[in-house]
Amino acid sequence: MTQTTNPSSPTAAEVPSRGLKRRLRLGERVIEGWIFLAGLLAIVVLLGIIFILLKEGLPVFANTNPWDFLFGTHWYPNADPSVFGIAPFLVSTLMITLISTIIAVPVGVACAAYLSEVAPPKVAETVKPIIEILAGIPSVMMGFIGLALLSPFVQSLFHLNTGLCGLTAAIMLSLMSLPIIVSVSEDALHAVPREFKEASYALGATKWETIWHVCIPAALSGIAAAIMLGVGRAIGETMTVLMVAGNALAVPASPVDPMTTMTAAIANSIGNAVRGGVQYQAIFAIGLILFILTLGVNIIAERVLERQKRKFSR
């Protein structure tokens, strides 16, 4: 009787298995497709950015040859003919990034080691979120702090004409990349198996020796990733350096000279550039170089991690 009330279905044995199977497959397809599209979107966006950078940036090399563009020391967009040499920005970016990394890495890794290995659990649980909040401070506020508090200090310390210089910017950037370095390194150190630490202590190593010779080497890939994230932050940061680096257009000779980084140069001049004009193209070319720089950092990081993994692979 039950079968007659439901005439569309085939025999009772076939109904559940076939119907269920078909529906599952459909759901599976939809989800697979959705994930595929999401993955595709990321790649499309990336390719799109590269395409636009190339399309808008490359034409500048018709007027200025790449060598002069990269190593030319003068940036005169309004001269006739315009001169586009980005050496001042390139050197500034490299110098500021390097100094901020040199400051941030030892402090950040030491802080992470303290939180992970030395601090009582309660202290670590309180301090880590506070450090992570530091990452959320808007960069314009960091610029303001650098302007109001740090630059007078740097000025008097080095007897400068102005405290707005590369060093001030580098110190602010190091503070800004500190949270991410601490947070990611701490995670990496925390993930070092307890067995390694126990083995080290059982051999009579002190706490410091255990951190330096066991925990840090074992967590090196994570720490390297943390450093690269910090470097990435420092290279890409715009507002803070715009506010405190001094915005000079000369190639800096020392860290305490006023500087303009590549990001700051883009932000400074994009407002004045005529869309499609030569200056506009030059700015996009700076963006292109910046992109190549960060890509290079990422590739190096990838290589380092890969080598590290191969060395200790099981």
Partner: peptide
């Protein structure tokens, strides 16, 4: 220990770890 726990280092470095620390 219960579970073999060599350090993620070379065989030599594993054995030399203790003497180096001392």
């Amino acid at each position: 220990f219960q579970k073999p726990n060599p350090f993620p280092m070379s065989v030599t470095e594993n054995v030399a770890f203790g003497p180096k620390r001392h």
